[in-house]
Simulated assay, not measured.
Amino acid sequence: MICPRCANDKTKVLKTIKSDTNERFRRCIKCGYTFMSIELIKVDDWAKFYIKETQKGLFDEAL
């Protein structure tokens, strides 16, 4: 993960909150800046087709 303050590519994960979107609190190794990153799930068209055919009704709102 790139630091938004100094653009260094080395950061340390301090804490992770797991849910539908994983939130990570990070600290830059170089400048010490602390920031948060969010990990989202990306669903492509193939996955939408697969979900629609195999698990009808489960994710209707997401499609």
Rank of each mutant, 00 (worst) to 15 (best):
V13R: 07
S19K: 07
K18F: 09
T34I: 15
L63K: 09
Y33N: 12
G57F: 00
K56H: 10
N22C: 10
G32E: 00
A7H: 13
K30A: 06
K18Y: 09
K48T: 10
C3G: 03
I38W: 06
M36N: 09
I41Y: 06
N8H: 09
S19F: 03
K10Q: 13
N8P: 05
A47F: 12
L63Q: 09
C6P: 00
M36E: 06
K52H: 09
F49Y: 12
G32W: 01
C28M: 02
I2Y: 01
R24I: 04
D45P: 04
P4L: 03
D9Y: 03
R24V: 04
C6Q: 01
M36T: 12
E61F: 07
E23K: 15
R27G: 00
I17R: 14
K56M: 07
Q55V: 13
S37V: 03
P4N: 02
L58F: 15
E61R: 05
A7M: 14
Y33A: 09
L14H: 00
C6L: 01
A62Y: 15
K15N: 13
D60A: 04
D45N: 14
M36G: 03
Q55K: 13
T34K: 14
I29R: 03
A62P: 08
L58S: 11
S19E: 08
D9F: 04
R26L: 11
R26V: 05
I17Q: 15
S37K: 01
T21H: 11
M1W: 07
E53I: 06
V43M: 03
L14I: 02
A7Q: 14
F35L: 01
K30Y: 04
R26K: 12
E39G: 07
M1N: 13
V13T: 14
S19R: 06
A47C: 11
K56F: 08
R24L: 07
C3Y: 00
V43T: 10
I38D: 11
E23C: 13
Y33M: 06
C28I: 01
K30F: 04
E53Y: 05
D60M: 00
G57C: 02
I51A: 12
W46T: 13
Q55L: 14
Y33V: 11
Q55R: 13
T21G: 09
F59E: 07
D45C: 07
D44N: 07
K56L: 07
C3L: 02
D9A: 08
T21R: 13
R26Y: 05
L63W: 07
R26I: 04
R5E: 15
R27C: 02
Y50K: 06
E53L: 07
I38L: 10
L40H: 14
T11K: 00
C3Q: 01
S37P: 00
E23Y: 14
I41M: 11
Q55D: 07
K52Q: 08
R24Y: 02
A7V: 12
K52Y: 04
N22I: 15
C31A: 03
K42Q: 14
R26A: 05
K48C: 05
T34A: 08
I17A: 14
D44I: 01
F49V: 15
Y33D: 05
T16R: 13
M1T: 13
I29G: 00
F25A: 08
K10A: 07
L63R: 10
K15D: 12
S19V: 00
D9Q: 08
D60R: 05
M36C: 09
